[in-house]
Design a protein around this nucleic acid. Structure first.
Lengths: 356, 356
DNA sequence: GGACCTCTTTACAACGTTATATACAACGAT
DNA sequence: ATCGTTGTATATAACGTTGTAAAGAGGTCC
């Protein structure tokens, strides 16, 4: 027969060229795959000369290790998931930033799950929807109860954020909600206020945070010898600005409106603030206002917002540290509860403008 | 010898039992691995009886597919990366939420990279630090120039956000910056203001957004027949509240301070607003204020903030859609530029309180 | 009753990496 | 010389999954 014609079948079309792998690098450098692997992983016992040759080949072929293969072989992925209700709730956004940063220090990458606070989605997360891809999970549940979480069959290491599940089935990182809420309320009382309201109560089984902060609020009243008035406690459906605004409106419509309000988070407080200013009430002259979370927005509003500031950086660090410990299997048997510091940051919404 | 003592070596310690795989399920169900795989993947031609048996085995062993292995075999991971400067800048937080949601509709999971706006980190991202794990990248660069991005050797599909890189090497989704900035400025002029300042100019090579918005601002002045006064243009180092506050202070110290300010984003505007109120200036009576981005905070401050509202949901949708198209290889050759709608949202910071 | 379908199931070979165990070389110390 | 000892490189076998090709099982048609 004649020579093969122009139609050369085995020619790898320039388009579907496979991604380069260790094998290709090895061939070009004239060494074994394992040697290339060793170079890539910084294994010590490689001659400078071989190393140089391999590195040249790597650069020439623009080789990148295939992480899926590596993960498969190593049995872990270096990825942890962070599950939060919504990424654009400032508190969670700040937390997410810090957690991503903290994870990076451990060489971990963060994959985000947004539950929207929906029970179904949270159950999926707890049940390990992404199991076998992630090495661990940092989870801030909204709708799930302790029982839900105990029923979890997935054994991926998990750390819980928020104070929802005490004596739960997993490690968790929390702030001293009761103490912090009490401090904030006492601060309002110390200003001389006598009708101190609370915005943020929640009835449903999931509202553990609300319960704790309410307990702190009541403890403060008790300590100050003030009566507890059910009518001054405003329940909300969610912890957004709109809920705070609506709750504040209801409180202002009372026969005897409050002269101070402790909001269970800053978004509620900012909503309440908006209602107060809209209706022409002076803050703090007529009504003093305190929140919880110390989100960025509260630091720049007018007036600036007095708030309980949890040490978010520490929450992030501890959460990642606990998780890493679990993942490496060096953790103690039982579940651990880590309490993180907080401090009351006093700003204009309670003490008024500082004279410059 | 006697019988083996209590020390039974080959007993798989209850702790290090391997994760269950298809093989284990197959053995328990008495079928081949491939059949189990077929069931897991919803392959049609499986007898109800076998399917039931397999499903029972899956449940009994609590089997979860190993995503690393699946990804390796399938050649893709179903993960895309989103690289943004910081997750807690409200604009990016909102965008991230929408992108995560949009990605989910395509069955994709999002992995977050925080560049902090650092050139080095951005280069790593562009160079595919996570290549071979992610199928695609949505990237909002701050420090990188068009040249940087063109030099990219990684061929992971990429979509750029923000208006930084025109005629760049990748698809991108942008808003009509010039037109939008012009609209906002014209709105201020229409209020009767004559000394309209701008906050947010940037000198460095990377400040493309700033350049475009400045162009819009100048176009509006020109159209209205107002002189362009260099002194009314305040440069900033970054787009945070603090920068806006400082810039506003400088503007107020001018011999002839402005009676309106267009800020190149909402954070700058909120910072500026804070300075104005702090110094006792009425907004909008003395100084009218407009921003850009329509972040949540601006909707609840006092006064509420007039701003250019880009259709963020659409930005997210388009970005993911473009990326998916690229990833599936069905995209056209050249790079595409998608313009997304915006509208000017007029609020109290320019028109004052609406009488209820 | 055989040929020819279709439906169901299977064995086996990848995917790209790292761990294990081993071979080979070089070098001192006996 | 011989024996270790150490340092370097390799061949091979996994990791758990899915695609391919082909085998079995049952039926229908002439």
């Amino acid at each position: 027969m004649g020579e093969p014609t122009a139609a050369t079948p085995p020619e790898p079309s320039p388009d579907d060229r496979r991604r380069v792998g260790l094998k290709d690098v090895a061939r070009l450098a004239g060494v074994s795959v394992k040697t290339v692997s060793n170079v890539v992983n910084g294994y010590v016992h490689v001659t400078p000369k071989t190393r140089a040759r391999v590195e040249r080949a790597i650069k020439e072929l623009n080789y990148r290790p295939n992480l899926s293969a590596r993960n498969l072989r190593r049995g872990r992925s270096g990825i942890i998931a962070l599950a939060v209700p919504e990424l654009d709730i400032p508190y969670f956004a700040e937390l997410a930033r810090l957690i991503v940063a903290a994870a990076e220090e451990h060489g971990l990458t963060v994959l985000i799950d947004q539950t929207g606070g929906s029970r179904h989605r949270e159950q999926q997360v707890a049940e390990g929807i992404r199991d076998q891809l992630i090495d661990g999970l940092i989870f801030s549940p909204l709708a799930l109860t302790a029982d839900d979480l105990s029923a979890r069959t997935d054994d991926t290491p998990m750390v819980l954020l928020g104070e929802r599940i005490h004596n739960g089935p997993a490690d968790h990182v929390v702030v001293h909600n009761v103490a912090a809420a009490k401090e904030a309320t006492l601060h309002l009382i110390a200003l001389g206020r006598r009708r101190v309201a609370a915005i943020g109560a929640q009835d449903d089984a999931a509202g553990e945070t609300a319960r704790l902060r309410l307990a702190g609020y009541r403890a403060a009243l008790a300590e100050a010898g003030l009566p507890f008035d059910e009518g001054l406690v405003a329940p909300v459906a969610a912890y957004h600005r709109a809920d705070g605004a609506a709750a504040m409106a209801r409180l202002l419509d009372l026969a005897e409106p409050p002269d101070a309000v402790f909001c269970f988070n800053d978004l509620l407080a900012l909503g309440a603030l908006r209602t107060l200013l809209e209706r022409g009430h002076e803050v703090p002259a007529e009504v003093a206002l305190a929140g919880f979370d110390d989100i960025e927005d509260g630091r720049y509003g007018t007036p600036t917002l007095t708030t309980v500031s949890p040490d978010k950086r520490e929450i992030a660090r501890q959460a990642v540290a606990l998780l890493v410990e679990r993942m490496s299997g060096t953790a103690r048997r039982g579940t651990r509860e880590i309490y993180v510091d907080h401090r009351l940051v006093i700003r204009e919404s309670t003490t008024g403008r500082k004279i410059p």
